[in-house]
Amino acid sequence: MHEISLVQGLLDQLHSIARENNAKQVLRVTMIIGPLSGVVVESFEFGFDILSRQDDLVRDAKLEIIIPEVTYRCSNCGQEEVTSRARPAQCAKCGDRILIATQGDDLILRQVEME
């Protein structure tokens, strides 16, 4: 459950962002969580739920999560497959099994709405 420590880091950032913008309340937090980031979305949501309850600034904040697609490129023929689901077992065109993922490992605080 490293998601808890990542959520703690998020809350720390939200506090300094709110301070910089003279905001009293965070209304909405938008995160980008790549499918290869090693972060389990449900665990992240759970951690946010638990930790935000104990925090006046974010207690009523809504967490929005964007899961981007990953592009898998075949190392043999260059065929690309774009998916938000599990890694394809093999290249759809030539059957090669070495597929290189590009991006998808991000964990990004995208946007904050506050007042």
């Binding site: 910089e20 905001a23 964990l107």
Partner: peptide, 28 residues
């Protein structure tokens, strides 16, 4: 260093602001 960028306008009348951050949580 608590840099308080006051942006000139006050948010006292419940108007919300949307700020793009685009910062990785792995950055630290």
């Amino acid at each position: 260093h608590d840099h308080s960028h006051s942006h000139g306008h006050s948010h006292s009348h419940d108007e919300s602001v949307i700020v793009d951050i685009n910062r990785s949580l792995f950055a630290a």
